[in-house]
Design a protein around this nucleic acid. Structure first.
Length: 929
DNA sequence: TATCTGGAAATATCA
DNA sequence: CTTGATATTTCCAGA
């Protein structure tokens, strides 16, 4: 403990420094100016300073919030999670979890505050600002968010390790990166550092973009532009941090490792992390479960907090601090640029920053809870510096939806689509390495994003950041940052900014290019696990958390002055050299559903398949336990490194009356398993197969088009979904409702149904529960839907938590689903994350809100309500379009009424022909099982 | 020369 | 506490 305290102190110092820097930030202000045009104005100006400040500012005010946080009792709710809980509060705001992280290290705390403040402030104020700003397309709208709620959602779980972490790390990095620009959105904070550090490099082109983009962001920053060079600078910074390297790591790692596992206790972390990597689903599952519960309570608390205090949000931002290098590097820079942020922050943040004392207080509190887990980590003075960055984050939030908010991919006439998906593998580079280039498309070339339905003549900007690819809600990845690539080979201009500790690449979307952008300027930077984990706020574990997604966002100005924010995420990208070389990866499956009889050959497309690869089908109980496991026969003759032909095993219960979702994965050995893929068993009679075709054929590409495209199969759904959902105004105020509607719509259209709502608790819980799923699920479910599906899988219910959490969480999820259904989001949404990060979801929702923002609160309510419905309705994860009926089965395969063979559709007939025998087999197998 | 990469050694962490 | 298996991070070297 003492140690922590010490650290805290340090932090404070740093903080102060930061603040000062912020003040200095006068320069920073300039940055704001940029932003000003759009973003800035919205946020900052009025909002930020005045409004935000007020709340936040006063740290005091903030403090209260802070205090709250502690009180949050997260702990109580979360128990160990408490931390998270606290964080959650913080998080809830924009900050996410990250903010929470603040726990241990001073930095964190600091950041959070800032962030919190900002975020909170932003939200509230934003609306106001927006009105004023109307012009700024982006900014304005964003404002609307109602953070409070959001916060609640995220809460604890959300904490956002990722975000915060990433941000932190990012920050440091960022500083190097970019810098600067970030202002626009966010915050000054970011910029400050960045700029300072930055320097350098801006590319002309970039500048140009920025300018062009300007509208969008204002990035301005030509000056900063220099910053562009980020990497280098970053590296350097990093070097400084050099310390960074390992020293810290050890401690950190261990800790988190603990976290991860223990995580179960502390929901946040573990859930995600563990799941992914490890095969040991069971463990994870458990964890998840635990988490869910926690979430619930935490979520609630968070929500309350949010409501009560805006400031809390800010806290989140502060959280991230971490990066040693960064800190140092940034610090200097901060002073310079901070100003802008500083203003916002400064006024706000400074205060917000919290006095050291305050911080310490928080820290202590947290520490009490979290600290134990995290505290151990020795902090490096350097690192502390980063905290400063935090502020920026907050800024961002004000205007635009926080990065951890789940947003729809389409709304009304608009649809943001990822026309070309990135390759499933991309080796990220460390700061100690040179760039490893831009993310490429599987078929060569680069990912392509396009905004459909936008007929205006004004160019927009697409934001790109690295998001998580786990079961939980989509959020900035704590261990990976987008890396701006420049050079002769890069045709797309881009500009880096930092939002909430997360590096964001801004790329112009020009009408002359049909609002289409080729993403050849985005690389992926890997931050050392030790650096990030150290952060107090961080809940996520870096180990085996090597999967990411590219997340694209566009903010479309609306006539009413609001801004419509759409988001699409890519298929998961494996960033680990080793994992990419050894872990089997299923990119596509020719069939996503088949009668229980089984027997049909399913072609899996992917990577790293071995002749002796095994394909295991698994049915999980709500609690994550494997109710049924069956090794599918593989066709060794047909084997190829990229293709695996498996015979669908008959389901254990041939009598299911409704579709049952199960999972399957490819296993190359002990710890070499692919993520869980989703497969649905249909009642013997049902003629469902239809969907298959599309799936089969659709390659990753399909996915691409849709957004997620995780799985081919999913795509179809997506398309459907997409079409269906589009609710024009939905995004806006109505936001939530719209979502609901969408959801319903979606569900219906898809087929499945209805039950998207199921997402709710159970789903969440499930998601959470099943660590493994998460990834798999995500992927599998091809579109957003997939997620849903996943949920179903897990199905189950975790009773307890769901409800409460559900309110908060669910909503988010729901919304997400809805939205996501449209776009990428789903995965995220659905996820379990919600549990973990209800808040995030909330935030996301808020995005919609943005337009609606004012109503957010109302919205929130709506969402909440809805969610519940959903939950109840469709616990089953089925929601995913795919399987309407599934739940039932899944939940209780048992019963199905004696098969109703009556209807045998044509397809069925065929199936039967082939499978009659199989059916018999199945029966046998079932018995065996 | 500066990058971009692929590979793999050196470390760390886990079991 | 040691050891083997894994996972992460740092280095090297070729293109």
């Amino acid at each position: 403990m003492s140690a922590p305290g010490e650290e805290q102190e340090f932090d404070f110092d740093f903080l102060f420094e930061f603040n000062q820097s912020d003040d200095l930030g006068g320069g920073g202000r300039e940055h704001y100016n940029y932003a000003s045009s759009n973003l800035t104005t919205s946020l900052p100006v009025g909002m930020v300073n005045s409004s935000l400040p007020a709340p936040c500012h006063g740290l005091q005010s903030c403090n209260p919030a802070i205090s709250i946080i502690p009180s949050t009792s997260h702990s109580s709710g979360y128990g160990g999670n408490n931390d998270s809980g606290a964080s959650g509060y913080y998080l809830s705001p924009n900050m996410r979890p990250n903010g929470i992280p603040a726990l241990e290290s001073p930095r964190i705390e600091i950041t959070p505050y800032l962030g919190m403040h900002q975020s909170n402030n932003q939200f509230f104020h934003d609306a106001d600002i927006e009105e004023a700003i109307p012009n700024s397309k982006r900014v304005p709208a964003t404002a609307t968010l109602n953070l409070p709620n959001v916060d609640a959602y995220r809460d604890p779980t959300c904490l956002s390790p990722a975000s915060s972490l990433s941000s932190r790390s990012c920050n440091s990095e960022a500083s190097s990166f970019e810098s600067n620009y970030s202002y626009p959105y966010t915050s000054p904070q970011t910029s400050p550092w960045q700029s300072p550090c930055v320097s350098p490099k801006t590319t002309d082109a970039e500048e140009g973009y920025q300018r062009g983009m300007v509208a969008c962001t204002l990035l301005t920053s030509p000056r900063h532009s220099p910053s562009t060079s980020p990497r280098t600078s970053v590296t350097e910074e990093n070097w400084l941090g050099a310390h960074n390297s390992r020293p810290s790591s050890p401690c950190n790692k261990r800790k988190y490792s603990l976290n991860g596992r223990q995580a179960s206790y502390s929901p946040h972390h573990s859930p995600t992390l563990s799941p992914q990597g490890s095969p040991r689903v069971s463990v994870t599952d458990e964890t998840w479960l635990g988490n869910t519960n926690q979430y619930t309570s935490s979520a609630i608390v968070a929500a309350i907090n949010a409501l009560t205090t805006d400031s809390t949000i800010d806290l989140n931002d502060g959280i991230p601090i971490k990066s040693r290098k960064t800190a140092i590097d940034h610090t200097p820079s901060l002073a310079l640029k901070m100003e802008p942020a500083g203003d916002d922050l400064g006024t706000t943040s400074p205060a917000a920053d919290l006095t050291p004392e305050e911080f310490s207080g928080f820290q202590h509190i947290r520490k009490g809870n979290f600290c134990d887990q995290y505290l151990s980590v020795p902090q490096h003075p350097y690192q502390w510096a980063k905290p400063k960055n935090m502020p920026p984050t907050s800024y961002m939030s004000p205007t635009l939806p926080a990065l951890d908010w789940q947003l729809p991919s389409h709304s009304g006439p608009y649809e943001l689509r990822l026309e070309v998906q990135p390759k499933s593998h991309h080796r990220a580079h460390y700061e100690t390495e040179g760039s490893r280039g831009a993310v490429k498309a599987s078929a060569g070339g680069h990912p392509i994003v396009q905004l459909h339905g936008y007929l205006e003549s004004e160019p927009l900007t697409v934001q790109l950041f690295i998001g998580t690819a786990d079961d939980r809600l989509l959020r900035p990845h704590a261990f990976y940052q987008v890396h701006r690539i420049t050079g002769k080979t890069v045709s797309t201009t881009s500009h880096e900014t930092i939002l909430s500790n997360t590096k964001v690449l801004e790329i112009p979307l020009l009408p002359e290019n049909n609002m289409r952008a080729i993403i050849d300027c985005a690389g992926i930077l890997k931050l050392r696990n030790s650096d990030i984990e150290l952060r107090k706020g961080e809940t996520d574990i870096g180990r085996k958390n090597t999967r990411v997604r590219l997340v694209f966002r566009v903010h479309i100005p609306q006539p009413n002055g609001r801004t419509l924010s759409l988001q699409v995420s890519s298929n998961p990208i494996e960033c680990s050299q080793r994992s990419a070389q050894e872990l089997p990866l299923v990119e596509k499956q020719s069939i996503d559903s088949f009668p229980v009889i089984g027997g049909k050959k399913m072609v899996l497309s992917g990577h790293n398949f071995l002749q002796d690869s095994k394909v295991m089908f698994v049915e999980k109980a709500p609690d994550g336990h494997h109710v049924w496991e069956m090794e599918a026969k593989t066709d060794k003759e047909m084997f190829k490194p990229n293709t695996l032909v498996v015979e669908i095993p008959s389901f254990r219960n041939p009598r299911i009356t409704s579709p049952v979702q199960v999972n399957f994965y490819v296993c190359n050995g002990k710890r070499k398993r692919s993520q869980f893929q989703i497969f649905t068993y249909l009642p013997a009679n049902v003629p469902i197969i239809k969907t298959e075709p599309s799936d089969d054929y659709e390659p990753a590409q399909t996915c691409g088009p849709l957004n997620q495209g995780l799985s081919p199969l999913s795509k179809p759904y997506y398309s459907q979904q997409i079409v269906m959902p589009p609710d024009p105004g939905s995004c806006l105020v109505a936001g939530f409702t719209s979502y609901q509607q969408r959801n319903t719509v979606m569900s219906s259209s898809p087929t499945s149904s209805p039950k998207l709502h199921d997402l709710s608790p159970s789903a969440y819980s499930k998601c959470i529960m099943n660590p493994g799923h998460s990834q798999l699920g995500l992927q599998q479910p091809p579109g957003g839907i997939p997620t849903l599906q996943e949920v179903p899988r897990s199905i189950v219910v975790h009773p307890s938590s769901p409800d409460q959490s559900s309110h908060i969480m669910l909503q988010p999820q729901v919304s997400q689903h809805l939205s996501s259904s449209c776009s990428l989001g789903y995965q995220q949404t659905l996820y379990p994350n919600s549990p973990s990060s209800p808040v995030p979801s909330v935030t996301q929702d808020s995005t919609y809100l943005q337009s609606c923002s004012p109503t957010r609160s109302s919205v929130m309510g709506q969402q909440q309500h809805q969610p519940p419905k959903v939950q109840r309705n469709d616990p089953p994860t089925n929601q995913p379009l795919s399987l309407p009926e599934l739940h039932e089965d899944s939940n209780h395969n048992l019963t199905p009424i004696p098969v109703t063979i009556k209807r045998e559709p044509e397809e069925l007939d065929q199936l039967y022909l082939d499978d009659v025998n199989e059916i018999i087999r199945n029966d046998l197998s079932c018995t065996n099982v």
